[in-house]
């Protein structure tokens, strides 16, 4: 019942926003900002870039909102816009892009036994590797791991066949797996 009410309210907000109601759009932004900015952060790897991309995504959403079908899934539509906005922001900044060490660092709140340190290192390594993946594979992986979309939803968001979703995901995860394997090999060699 509560779910139905939420959906109805969101539908009402979308319809009001389509008529140009800025307050209704503001409420939609507040509701979806977190999930959108998290996804674009995983695409960009930097807080400032992610917030720029999120801002651009919501501006594009505002402009294109009249063409949005109110009963469709707004979050998935926003993801589609956000992924494209993130890629555009990255392309624009690519020449001056310097990795933000602060954001690449894994939280220091994790305490320090050796295993935990290794895990922190692996997490950091994978985040770097994620940002080095080709755009197409990265988009699919980010939408799966951080957007938590099904294959069908990813196919719909990126407008690609479901078979392509599977092959890009296979490529991306296998690439990251290789990175982890080679890192483990290096560690072994260093200890030997």
């Amino acid at each position: 019942m509560a779910l139905v009410k939420t959906v109805d309210t969101e539908l009402g907000l979308i319809e009001q926003a389509q008529q140009g109601d800025r307050n209704a759009f503001g409420e939609l932004v507040r509701r979806h900002y977190e999930s959108v900015v998290h996804v674009v952060y995983r695409m960009c790897g930097e807080v400032q870039l992610a917030e720029d991309a999120a801002q651009e995504a919501f501006l594009r959403a505002w402009i294109n909102l009249p063409s949005f079908e109110p009963r469709a899934n707004l979050r998935n539509w926003l993801y589609r816009i956000a992924v494209n906005a993130a890629l555009d922001v990255l392309r624009r900044k690519s020449e001056t892009f310097v990795e933000d060490e602060e954001t690449l660092m894994v939280s220091d709140q994790m305490p320090g036994p050796e295993e935990t340190l290794i895990r922190k290192e692996q997490v950091e390594l994978l985040q770097r590797a994620l940002r080095n993946l080709p755009e197409a594979s990265r988009s699919v992986l980010v939408l799966r791991e951080y957007g938590e979309l099904s294959y069908q939803e990813i196919a719909s968001v990126l407008d690609i066949p479901i078979g392509t979703v599977m092959s890009r995901l296979n490529y991306a995860r296998n690439r990251l797996r290789e990175v982890l394997q080679s890192h483990a090999q290096e560690m072994e060699n260093a200890h030997a």
Partner: peptide, 23 residues
């Protein structure tokens, strides 16, 4: 790989209220 990707912590972002106001 999947677990490690999901374990990556998130930094602090601009709060939703302020982001919406700026937007």
């Amino acid at each position: 790989v999947s677990d490690l990707l999901r374990a990556a912590p998130l930094p602090e972002f601009t709060p939703a209220e302020r982001f919406a106001a700026n937007l």
